[in-house]
Design a protein around this nucleic acid. Structure first.
Lengths: 355, 355
DNA sequence: GTTAGCACTCAGATGATTCAAGTGCTAATT
DNA sequence: AATTAGCACTTGAATCATCTGAGTGCTAAC
């Protein structure tokens, strides 16, 4: 598996590349006869057959059955993406579309990610996903309180760069002057604290600070705790699930069902991706069973981290059959992720921040 | 089609009901022989065959081919749900689960709907959907501005009962004292206005009011307009798409793809549902082609409006094969929608409000 | 009005046959 | 020693004929 990567002579490489390309294009096993048409390989079908037999022995090719051609194994795909493909660049017009779409949404990271994922699916014709990873330490950076009427108010919390809101309903009235005061107390006392760090003495101190309005503290603090605990920041979205169905490898209903269930449960994928999302700024590729849940054999996951001011804030990617158009997908994801980063980094941010 | 609904004698009703029940349970065409086992129908297979022939003539039954049994037509299902099923009540434990899950999320309508739709899918084993309809006249009811650092702030807008936020970035500094002032001006001048009603003279007046900080008005107003125009309130979510695949009627890949595309585009469904969602507080049922997009023949849509203080604020429903367990689905959707309404109406709201 | 009986229909299952693509191997060739 | 032509062999997929049985419609008897 790991270790001494066998060296392939040029002809083997050409053959392997031709097989993967042909199989990606057509979906069928590839035979020796067909390969003789390829200009890069100047030899007869018999020779190719010998080479193929060796490639199979090395683990790069597989045979569905005796009388069929060869298909690439997962190792074959791996070798292909690592060593055989040259970089593919998007056309000018594609880049334009991409830039244009992103520029629309100057501000909201959420909106940008949503746009990007839609675009990714459209450009590649596979299912796309966007991810915002779980956060380790969750705390509110800032509070604001908006009074709606005598008994209801909206508590507004800034968590990282996400704004969360929660309705507060009280049995007793919420006087207008109390809201600003309460917001002040919250900002003074529990910004930067995780749910576990909000202790009873702290709450009691806040009640003392609120004087006559102490009855407001408990419900509000409870709301804060609920929000913090319920918020892990993790968010995983899919676009273009229907595109999966265009590929025959997903015609197996049972497999498809499991895959869709995976999409809906999200936890598993969220975990896998959150783990990997930190690692580096290269396009990551998981082929088949390499790293993922067992459901996803004969699927490939291609994704890349999106950074803001150098810190990872999410990822976008593509899910498709192992037999996917890697060059195109990799280029798209790479450009998109770069584009997002540029867009959100655009107005340079001062160094210090409150995360 | 409409008009004089033919009257069926009791035996025909019993036969029709038995056929629909059996077909829902088994998915296969139902033959005369099988029906003789049914206690409600005390006659021989030959008699049943005669009755079935008449029912077919009336349009309530269909024959896939000569030598198969009968299946209900859409009209047959319609008659069945309108006149033949008795109300099915959820078990105590089911109701408990339902109540319990809803109670968790006291506040946020969004969160409640999310919980409900997950629950609906789980309880019925079909795909569930939740809807928040488009809104006609969109305006901001309240502004708040939260300063983050010298050049960025978060604009917080209350639209209906939804809080929307937008980041504001400025080339020039945003002084702390300007934020409260700006929020005040916004609240004074453009609450209740739609995007079209925010005119240039109005903006200029606001700039005058802001004095030295007039440069902040334009970017903020632009952000407001973008938000208002981009927000139509419409939101449509699905849960349990994978459950569709359990039913053989969706084994046709092409059909399935179209259906999934429908789920992703949303516009069409959003329109259909938004239109119908206003109408009454009964459970609505669309069978096959009755009212929907052509993609959805042999699917049925069951849904019900969710109201808050008597006003419709959304809907939840189920999508499944026409051959679905109507009694169970209807009961579930009904209870859920009731449950949500109760939960959000719970703390009585004063009459007046700002929508 | 109901039922038994029977000829008829037709989708689906089963099985035999053919087809063609592709291999592996051997022997000839360079 | 590497390459190639040639050929026997394997095997999934496609085609076709046959069989089966569930279910019907109709007629005649009850």
């Amino acid at each position: 598996m790991s270790g001494g990567e066998k060296v392939l002579n040029e002809r083997k490489k050409a053959i392997l590349k031709a097989i993967v390309d042909a199989h990606i294009a057509g979906g069928e096993p590839v035979g020796s006869k067909f390969l003789t048409q390829n200009q890069q390989i100047g030899c007869s079908s018999a020779t190719i057959r010998n080479e193929m037999a060796e490639l199979e022995e090395m683990g790069y090719l597989e045979q569905p059955h005796t009388s069929a051609g060869r298909i690439p194994s997962e190792a074959g795909y791996r070798f292909y993406v690592d060593q055989l493909i040259d970089r593919y660049n998007l056309t000018e017009s594609e880049i334009d579309e991409l830039r244009g779409a992103l520029r629309q949404k100057q501000n909201e990271l959420d909106a940008i990610m949503q746009t990007a994922v839609t675009l990714a699916s459209k450009l590649t014709n596979y299912t796309a996903l966007s991810l915002r990873p779980r956060q380790a330490r969750i705390s509110v950076g800032r509070f604001e309180l908006m009074r709606l009427d005598d008994t209801t108010a909206v508590l507004i919390m800034l968590i990282g760069s996400v704004v969360k809101t929660k309705y507060i309903r009280s049995n007793r009235t919420i006087p207008p002057e109390a809201t600003a005061m309460l917001a002040g107390v919250l900002n003074a006392k529990i910004t930067g604290l995780t749910a576990g760090e909000i202790t009873l003495p702290l709450v009691m101190e806040m009640e003392r600070m609120m004087g006559d309005y102490d009855y407001l503290v408990t419900p509000v603090v409870r709301a804060v705790c609920e929000t913090i605990s319920g918020f892990d920041g993790g968010d995983l979205r899919f676009e273009g699930i229907n595109r999966l169905l265009a590929y025959p490898e997903f015609y197996d209903m049972d497999r498809l069902r499991e895959l869709l269930a995976l999409f809906e449960k999200k936890d598993t994928l969220l975990e896998v991706l959150s783990d990997e999302a930190r690692s580096g700024d290269r396009v990551q590729i998981f082929i088949g069973r390499e790293n993922l849940v067992k459901v996803m054999d004969n699927s490939t996951l291609v994704f890349k981290t999106v950074t803001q001011n150098g810190k990872p804030v999410g990822a976008i990617g593509i899910i498709g059959p192992t037999r996917m158009n890697y060059r195109r997908v990799i280029a798209t994801i790479d450009s998109l992720s770069r584009g997002i980063t540029e867009t959100i980094d655009g107005p340079r941010h001062p160094e210090g921040d409150e995360s």
